[in-house]
């Protein structure tokens, strides 16, 4: 949908001035954000940033100290059962009933919402677990459990899905597989709110991201705008000796050039002509281009490097 259309629709989720303290620790310290229907919204930040606490208050599992939360215009606290039907929550990947198979888990979770288990098989297929339908939960791998827990969050066909770190602890292959699952959930028109501490993943998946640190949202926008807003130069890396730093500085558009270790780093805000020039003069297999990422955004916002 276009930005104009989105602005006209009431937000699916509206959070204002959200606050939660544990003793002296301000876990969530005045958080504001809105999530538009159908949006893939990411909350990212390092461990302990307040992502999960924020999420739990929005889900209605934790009482806020202050602020308001509205999901489809209703407050999730105190426990709001009509709202609970419209939201799906994925918790940690072990939240299963003992000794039941994948398909039985899905049917049982469906029963908690008073709906039949007819969507169970479809959900297993959605997360790519059809072959594991009759496998018990304790016999599934970590990635399979994650996918099953996501399927369990979807089995009652909710409008909003909350996923708390669905990809953490997975190997790269399993993470990639899960990205496909998340994409296909988005394609079904669900609003997705998810937390992650993988910045490049948020950049890849999310329509908009909120970057959190120490209980506050430092920035909130589309990944592209955040990166663009940084106005950081593109870096071109070359093997040292292919071209000297002095020569590199003379290329039109180059801002700076310097050697570090066995690499020559060229920075530019106009990468097109610079790359064209380099392509004519140096062997391309020695060349790497680094564009700005959310990691640079985080560094810029907090003044320190991002650690997952």
């Amino acid at each position: 949908m276009s930005a104009n259309e989105a602005a006209l629709m009431p937000p699916a989720i509206a959070v204002e001035g959200l606050r939660k303290s544990y003793g002296d620790l301000k876990a969530v310290d005045g958080v504001n954000f809105e999530v538009i229907e159908g949006e893939f919204f990411g909350i990212l930040g390092p461990n302990g940033a307040g992502k999960t606490t924020t999420m739990e208050m929005v889900e209605g599992l934790r009482k806020p100290d202050g602020g308001t939360i509205r999901i489809f215009g209703e407050s999730p606290w105190p426990r709001n059962t009509s709202l609970l039907r419209r939201i799906g929550i994925q918790l940690q990947a072990s939240a299963f009933f003992d000794k039941l198979t994948s398909i039985e888990q899905l049917r049982t979770f469906a029963a908690l919402y008073g709906v039949g288990g007819d969507k169970a098989a479809e959900m297993l297929e959605l997360v790519g677990l059809s072959e594991k339908a009759d496998t018990r939960e304790d016999k599934l791998s970590g990635g399979q459990k994650q996918r099953l827990s996501i399927a369990c969050a979807l089995v009652h066909d909710p409008d909003v899905v909350f996923l708390d770190e669905p990809t953490s602890g997975l190997d790269p292959q399993a993470r990639r597989n899960l990205w496909d699952v998340l994409e296909s959930i988005r394609e079904r028109g669900k609003t997705i709110v998810y937390t992650t501490h993988y910045l490049e993943e948020a950049e890849e998946l999310c329509d908009r991201v909120a970057i959190m640190e120490s209980g506050k949202i430092l920035a909130l926008d589309t990944p592209a705008s955040l990166v663009k807003g940084l106005e950081a130069p593109t870096r071109v890396l070359l093997k040292k000796g292919v071209i000297s730093a002095e020569l590199a500085r003379e290329i039109t558009g180059v801002e700076s050039a310097g050697e570090e270790g066995d690499l020559l780093t060229i920075t530019t805000r106009d990468p097109g002509p610079v790359l064209a020039h380099l392509a004519e003069n140096v062997p391309l297999d020695t060349l790497q281009v680094r564009t700005t990422t959310l990691e640079d955004v985080f560094l810029n916002l907090t003044g320190r490097a991002y650690r997952e």
Binding site: L84, L91, Y113, G114
Partner: peptide, 10 residues
């Protein structure tokens, strides 16, 4: 966390 999961259901 099955209890929490149950609590998040109506």
């Amino acid at each position: 966390q099955v209890l929490r999961r149950i609590r998040s259901a109506p």
